[in-house]
């Protein structure tokens, strides 16, 4: 009997992370496109860091920062009642940061290629920034939004280093599929490893294929 828990945890993590990322990335991308602030390059660098930083570095600092053994981790634990180390909440937070560039970058580039006159036309009509963003700008970069959602989802499914460091590998709680594969291989259970690996392979293939089909216009009739 296969243990489906790691797969469920992976999916749950990916869905929650993607949903939260979508909500926070839209204002972030909008700010990056419109700001003239000198801090922009620094913020952009920070957002892009997870692309190049080894996941273990991120995981390590999370572990240190949120450990109840130090002041900050202790404060979060006592005041917010959040235990972020070796918990699902911690996994979500780490995943959000780890997948942030995969959501922000597509939305940012989608917004930045829209002609500026669209925003100005909407302003002249008396519409607020938010109305302009949600009624005019975002509906005109649907494909970028979709790319962001799918990449963030797929990237979260494929996480290993960060979730291992901050989540540990607690069965039924923080053991995601990618870690389960590693564990099964270590225990010489190649059958079980193969099962998880195949499922992940199929999920990521389908998800990415969907992006290319939709953005390539093959499914235009269904996406209008």
């Amino acid at each position: 009997m296969m243990n489906w828990d790691p797969l469920f945890i992976t999916l749950k993590l990916a869905v929650v992370t993607t949903a939260i990322l979508l909500v926070i990335s839209i204002p972030m991308a909008y700010w990056l496109v419109n700001t003239k602030s000198r801090s922009k390059p620094f913020i952009e660098t920070l957002i892009s860091m997870p692309l190049v930083l080894p996941p273990t570095v991120l995981g390590f600092y999370f572990l240190v920062a949120f450990s109840p053994g130090n002041a900050f981790g202790n404060w979060i634990n006592e005041w917010l009642g959040l235990k972020l180390v070796f918990s699902f909440g911690g996994l979500v937070l780490a995943s959000i940061i780890y997948s942030l560039p995969f959501m922000v970058h597509p939305i940012q580039s989608g917004l930045s290629i829209l002609p500026h006159s669209l925003t100005e036309a909407s302003q002249v009509m008396g519409k607020s920034k938010w109305t302009t963003l949600f009624k005019v700008l975002l509906p005109n970069c649907k494909t970028s939004l979709l790319t962001g959602i799918v990449l963030a989802f797929a990237h979260t499914v494929g996480e290993f280093g960060v979730v291992l460091m901050i989540g540990g590998s607690i069965p039924g709680k923080t053991k995601v599929a990618s870690i389960a594969i590693y564990d099964e291989v270590e225990a010489m259970n190649y059958g079980a490893a193969n099962f998880y690996a195949t499922v992940l392979f199929i999920i990521t293939f389908c998800v990415l294929l969907m992006v290319y089909l939709i953005n390539g216009g093959y499914l235009k009739r269904f996406w209008k």
């Binding site: 006159s117 669209l118 100005e120 036309a121 909407s122 002249v124 008396g126 005019v136």
Partner: peptide, 20 residues
């Protein structure tokens, strides 16, 4: 006064019609 608060009609060079 912000553009929102002036009562103006503006036709842009590229028309700026909303594609959606």
């Amino acid at each position: 006064l912000a553009p929102q608060n002036r009562n103006i009609g503006y036709v842009f060079q590229d028309y700026a019609l909303f594609p959606n």
